[in-house]
Simulated scan of single mutants.
Amino acid sequence: MKITRIVAYQVDLPLKEGRYAWSGGKAVDVFDSTVVAVETDSGITGYGEVCPLGPFYLPAYAAGARAGIVELGPQLIGCDPRELGQLNDRMDRCLRGHAYVKSAVDMACWDILGKVAGLPVCQLLGGRFGEDVLLYRAISQRSPAEMAENVRQYRDEGYRRFQLKVGGDPDEDIERIRAAAGVLQPGDRLVADANTGWTRHEAVRVVNAVRDIDVYIEQPCLSYEECLSVRRLTPHPFVLDESIDGLQPLLRGHTDLAMDVVNIKISKFGGLTHARQARDLCVSLGIAMTLEDSWGGDIVTAAIAHLAHSTPEPLRFTSTDFNSYVTVANATGAPQREGGRFSASGEPGLGVTPTDAVLANPVLEVA
């Protein structure tokens, strides 16, 4: 089997809430997603998706994903999409860095492998653990009262994990954490995610001010070293995200006891192949994980579900269902939330088919 053509499609994903805001005044109204189709000489096509969280979150941006595919795509024509180790080695040799560019291609090739094998991707990634996957809801940065009300509303919809977007003014963030914690019920979990937004002294102020609250602290500062210093000053469970983008940072974090939970984002690692490597390393080391991506629609949501569902439950802290945040469906067959949980599809591959509207407007083709 050989890759014969790679086609990319651009899809706007407007938000149901109208606006998603996080640290440092960053906000997005419409997410710019790229759907990639990898076609083969056997007639089987796989689909992937990459959707950076704007150009100011990680070193990634939407137009860059498409430009990178123009650069990388010709080097992949003629490759066997089922040989994922070789494919990723070739991508890494032909394009240094730019993990997010490779993510949708790798995802599409996992889709092909599942279709060829007649198995859902989660079985190929290690098997299906449990009946479903527990989800979190991200709470966009607003006033403390509004964020607490959002937590209450989403709890009524079945969510039990809440990720507060903080990383703003420390005094207001302290109020945000206290207000949200005040509406929780037994069994709920609250994460205060600063997305690198605090300086070290601000982070220390916040964690000391909320010592009496049951809350996880996520990525308070920009650098790993700053986060580690804050970690050593707080009794709260600690999550690292932006600082952990490969196996070496992950091993360093484990050695330094820098985190209790790590966030594995598919596109941050370069696709399901490398995300699985990181996941399996975490399983071996006993590190709990949030399994997700930067953002996306139905195809990314399906990939998240397969990665999460193939992860042992004791180390599966949470995941998320991005397709429930947006107003546009870019595929059918994706998992849909039920009571704060979802399940990976049992169909071969990712179990999704892009909608006709998506496939009608290709923005680039490599053959």
Rank of each mutant, 00 (worst) to 15 (best):
S294Y: 04
S294M: 06
W295L: 00
L281A: 10
R279N: 10
D212H: 08
E202V: 00
T290A: 02
E225L: 14
A209N: 12
R279T: 14
P249Y: 09
G270M: 03
V191G: 06
I213T: 01
A288H: 08
G270F: 05
E292N: 15
V206E: 09
L285E: 12
Y224C: 10
L285Y: 09
I217M: 13
G253A: 05
G286D: 03
L291A: 04
R276D: 07
L190T: 01
N208R: 14
H201E: 04
H236C: 01
L233M: 10
G297V: 04
D214Y: 06
T234C: 11
V207T: 08
G253E: 10
T234Y: 13
A194V: 03
D241K: 00
K268T: 00
S294D: 05
L250H: 11
M289D: 05
A209H: 06
I266M: 07
T234H: 12
G286R: 13
E218C: 04
L190E: 01
K268P: 06
V207I: 12
C282N: 13
A275L: 09
P237Y: 09
R211I: 09
L257H: 14
S267A: 05
I299V: 10
T199P: 00
A258M: 00
L272V: 03
P235L: 01
V215N: 05
Q248T: 11
R232A: 10
I266A: 10
E218H: 09
A288N: 13
R211A: 12
D260G: 00
W295I: 02
M289T: 12
R279P: 12
E225F: 10
L222S: 11
D214F: 03
E226P: 14
K268V: 01
E225A: 15
A275V: 08
D245S: 08
C282T: 11
D260E: 08
G286S: 12
T255E: 15
M289Y: 00
T196K: 15
P220H: 12
N195A: 02
L190Y: 02
H201S: 09
K268F: 03
M259I: 02
L281M: 06
N195Q: 00
G297M: 05
V239D: 05
A275M: 03
K268L: 05
R276V: 07
L190N: 13
T290P: 01
L285C: 14
R205V: 03
P237G: 11
T290I: 08
Q219L: 11
A194C: 02
